[in-house]
Nucleic acid binder design. Structure first.
Length: 237
DNA sequence: AATAACGTCAACCGCCATGTT
DNA sequence: TAACATGGCGGTTGACGTTAT
């Protein structure tokens, strides 16, 4: 037997969502949550397939979604994480609260790829001082890595810790939280173990938080930068 | 003013992983 | 354990807005 189609094609609306549809979906989810996406449109009275509803909610309607342009810090973080994670947009999104994988993917394709190419062109012409700084930083990291490493096992470094630290912004009990945390959890344990063991933030002090506590995600850019730089030393990449 | 070219972004599609029966 | 259902992810598309000619 073949796989069941995602949704009934007949009679279901496609394309841009109207404000009315948004309102209906938002009201329904605020009231009942979204335990079953496939059943949701019928229950809410929407002529959309469940997948479409889920996408609309996840990428646009969730209250924790941050709209507006990406900051320089966010863009830098995306570039750095992309170098490490590749096109694992959901994993990258897990580190940027309020940003969706779709949004990050779009920004990457529209802005950042270009920016990277430009930077690359510049780099081939000038050896920048920032590069030297980074090299010095990497060297420092390498030196620190000579110390015995204590591998953080997932239960300790726990991607769930990552997700809770980085993505938990909603508090409405009726509304299931953004599941992007699960995306972070989906990262290979091996990956995080390797990256973290390479990171200067890895030490035997179990009280060290991951990432370090800070008032905003932007304060963590250095943290992710260091994780990234550490990861670059891994043969895996 | 017209329109072609380009950029942006919301949304769709198909596949895969995981959960359930 | 197999079959199926569902959620989630990444790639891609197409509509729309903006800029250049």
């Amino acid at each position: 037997m073949g796989r069941a189609p995602c949704c009934e094609k007949m009679g279901l609306k496609k394309g841009t969502w109207t404000p009315e549809e948004d309102q209906i979906l938002t009201n329904h989810i605020n009231k009942h949550g979204h335990k079953n996406w496939r059943a949701l449109p019928k229950l809410a009275g929407l002529l959309r397939c469940g997948k479409s509803c889920r996408l609309r909610w996840m990428n646009y309607l969730r209250p924790e979604i941050k709209r507006g342009n990406f900051t320089k810090e966010e863009e830098d973080m995306i570039i750095q994480l992309h170098a490490t994670l590749g096109n694992r947009w959901s994993a990258i999104a897990a580190t940027l609260p309020g940003r969706t994988d779709n949004e990050i993917k779009n920004v990457w394709h529209t802005h950042l790829k270009k920016r990277l190419n430009q930077d690359k062109d510049k780099d081939t012409k000038i050896s920048s001082s920032s590069h030297k700084k980074r090299s010095a930083k990497v060297q420092k990291i390498s030196e620190e890595k000579k110390e015995p490493l204590v591998m953080l096992s997932p239960p300790h470094c726990a991607s769930s810790d990552v997700s809770s630290t980085l993505t938990t912004t909603a508090t409405d009990n009726n509304v299931p939280l953004n599941n992007k945390g699960a995306a972070a959890e989906s990262l290979d344990d091996d990956f995080w173990s390797q990256v973290l063991s390479s990171s200067p933030y890895n030490n035997s002090d179990e009280t060290t938080s991951f990432p370090p506590n800070s008032s905003s995600v932007y304060d963590n850019v250095d943290f992710w930068y260091d994780v990234y730089m550490g990861a670059q030393d891994l043969p895996y990449f």
